[in-house]
Simulated scan of single mutants.
Amino acid sequence: MYNIFSYVIFLCVTSLITIEVGRRCYNAGKHYLNYLIHDADFCLTINKILLGCYYLINLGYIGINLANWENVNSMEQLISVTAQRIGYISLILCFLHFINIFTLYFLRKKLIIK
């Protein structure tokens, strides 16, 4: 019974985090990509591709998390397991976001030098 509550909490929180972070990164990414590339149509295309990949990676990771969920037998374990899984998703989101920013920054520097 605790597993179902844990799944519902996990899915609600990770869905909210995924949608909100994706929306914010998409909106802020327009300006950042415009600053780096100076081509509005190309920036919009890249931004949409990044958003799609972001959602796919998150959905995949959420699915893997649900498939490998351990049995939850108490309320303490429910809070612990759910918080730990949500924390992992948050850390992965931050890591992927910074990889994207640094990759775009270094690609721009490489393009300017040539």
Rank of each mutant, 00 (worst) to 15 (best):
T45M: 11
Y35N: 09
N71C: 03
N27V: 12
I17H: 09
L50Y: 11
I92A: 15
A40W: 12
L91R: 06
C43M: 14
A67F: 15
L44N: 15
G63I: 13
Q77A: 02
S74K: 08
I64Q: 15
L78C: 02
L78W: 02
I46W: 00
V8T: 12
N47R: 08
N71A: 02
A83Y: 09
Y7I: 13
Y54G: 06
L51F: 05
I19G: 02
N71T: 04
L44T: 12
E76H: 07
G60E: 04
R24W: 11
N27D: 10
L33I: 07
E70Y: 07
T18R: 00
L91C: 12
D39K: 05
R24K: 10
C43I: 05
I4N: 15
F10R: 00
R24D: 10
Y7E: 11
L91K: 05
Q77M: 06
T14H: 07
L50P: 03
A83V: 07
G29L: 07
E76D: 09
I4D: 14
V8K: 04
S74N: 03
I79Q: 06
R85W: 06
E76R: 11
V8R: 08
Q84C: 09
I86Y: 03
A83E: 07
C53Y: 04
Y32Q: 11
I62N: 05
L56D: 00
F5Q: 09
L44I: 05
A83F: 08
V13C: 08
I46P: 00
T45V: 04
S15Q: 14
A67K: 15
I19P: 14
I4T: 15
K30N: 06
I64T: 14
F10D: 00
V72I: 14
I92G: 14
I57V: 13
R85P: 00
Y32C: 15
Y35M: 04
Y35L: 10
Y2C: 05
L33H: 03
S15R: 15
L11W: 06
S15K: 05
G60Y: 05
A40C: 14
L66N: 06
L36C: 01
A28E: 10
Y54C: 06
L50E: 13
Y55H: 00
Y61Q: 09
Y55W: 04
Y35K: 07
Y32I: 13
T18F: 12
Y7W: 11
I79V: 12
V13S: 12
L51H: 01
V72C: 03
N73W: 11
E76M: 02
N71V: 05
I19E: 09
G22M: 10
L11R: 04
H31G: 07
I57P: 00
I9H: 03
C53G: 05
Y55T: 01
R85G: 05
S74H: 08
Y7N: 08
K48H: 02
Y26F: 11
W69R: 15
E76Y: 06
V8L: 12
G29N: 04
N47L: 03
I37D: 03
Y55G: 08
I17S: 07
S15M: 09
L56I: 01
W69C: 10
R23W: 10
Q77G: 06
L66V: 09
N47C: 08
C53H: 00
M75E: 05
T45H: 15
L33N: 11
L36N: 02
I79M: 03
E70M: 12
V13N: 07
G60Q: 03
Y54I: 02
L78R: 03
I46D: 01
Y88W: 13
L91G: 11
V21Q: 08
